[in-house]
Design a protein around this nucleic acid. Structure first.
Lengths: 205, 205
DNA sequence: TTATAAAAATGAACATTGTTCAAAAAAAAT
DNA sequence: ATTTTTTTTGAACAATGTTCATTTTTATAA
């Protein structure tokens, strides 16, 4: 173990500490209400240090958005043990909603907040890897469904996109407060009620 | 015409002028990049004046979000001439997408930006009228579809919510840049391709 | 151990933001 | 012409993201 190695580890640790502090504050008081100064205070470092480890706020938000995808991944983990692709598809949407509702701020960061995408653009990164991988799971599952004779007459990719959008749209309306004040009969269960309507439909396809 | 009347008209006119200037700048450089000072400059008034006519920035954003719903209403106008509810439902989604793509910044303000909802909360307004009315159009159409024997075994409200979410989700992913960098086969048409998959499905219901 | 070089951390300073409010200017009423 | 009311103003404030010369800490060499 050289000194350089230890330093590299320490750098990585502080980087992680900053992200941890940022995430804590995000969950406590929201992304927009969290400032760099807040984050620095939280971990007992100065503002300047934060900027040594991250180019700007977008960079922090991007890294945190990646962590969000890791967390979604751990929600998804057991899914791939399910052999039947139709059953897997059904559970996938359910778990997706569960993740979104249990991690609203993170979900928002992953799929709504502009910063992570702006970071990608600013670093000349063409692809959105996190998105590619996650959407890949949907596509793969749908493909298996089609192979088994389901979704006759449908195209894999647009169908996958539509189903992703369906679930995302519900989460999005909920998280961005567009379901409040719309006078649903059962506001508390509307996401799962809506999802059930979708389940009824694909049951026949 | 009393002096008070004229003054009232002038007040209303200046209010409208501020909103017009704000909208122009929003479309030019985005909502987040537009400052109150920008708006004041645009219409040759001082910052202070803007605050005489609007409580804060959220109030401007809320009023502009309402204007967005008026504009969506004019897109929807001809829809209600369509007798067949299934045909109307199909066209409604299509027009909804068209509106979203042609007015991305306004759509974002209407359905994603938090400010308009924060304004509602701060003014103790329980209901989101614009949302209630627009969602009402979907519900009414679905209800007519059910009355005509479609969507057997489905519940009107959750089904309406699911369909709204489906279309909204696609628009949302597009506008918030989550379709870029995901390597679609046909990125330019993915929204309409996705919508077509939905059309194929409800065709059978 | 001490002196020197490299790395890491700092926080004052800057430009920009939303917002306020006493003062000035303009308009209306007397 | 004078007073009162309404409207407009922009300097000032606190808070934000960001920068960077300076200081502090750590590693290396003598």
């Amino acid at each position: 173990m050289s000194v350089a190695d230890r330093k590299a580890r320490e750098k990585e640790a502080l980087r992680a500490l900053i992200l941890k502090g940022a995430k804590k504050l995000f969950l406590e008081k929201g992304i927009e209400q969290t400032t760099i100064r807040n984050i620095a205070d939280e971990i007992d470092y100065s503002v300047g240090t934060v900027y040594v480890y991250f180019k700007d706020k977008n960079a922090i938000l991007h890294d945190l958005h990646s962590i969000g995808f890791q967390e979604l991944g751990s929600y998804f983990k057991d899914l791939f043990k399910i052999e039947d692709p139709m059953e897997r598809l059904q559970k996938m949407g359910f778990i997706y909603i569960k993740f979104a509702l249990e991690n609203q701020e993170m979900y928002d960061l992953m799929f709504n907040v502009k910063a992570p995408m702006e970071f990608l653009e600013s670093s000349n990164n063409e692809d959105w890897n996190e998105g590619v991988v996650t959407f890949g799971h949907v596509k793969k599952t749908i493909e298996e469904c089609i192979d088994k004779g389901h979704f006759k007459g449908h195209n894999m990719e647009p169908l996958s996109f539509m189903i992703w959008s369906l679930v995302h749209g519900m989460c999005c309306l909920e998280i961005r407060q567009r379901t409040k004040g719309v006078k649903f009969t059962n506001p508390d269960t509307i996401l799962y009620d809506g999802y059930n309507e979708y389940l009824k439909i694909i049951d026949k396809l």
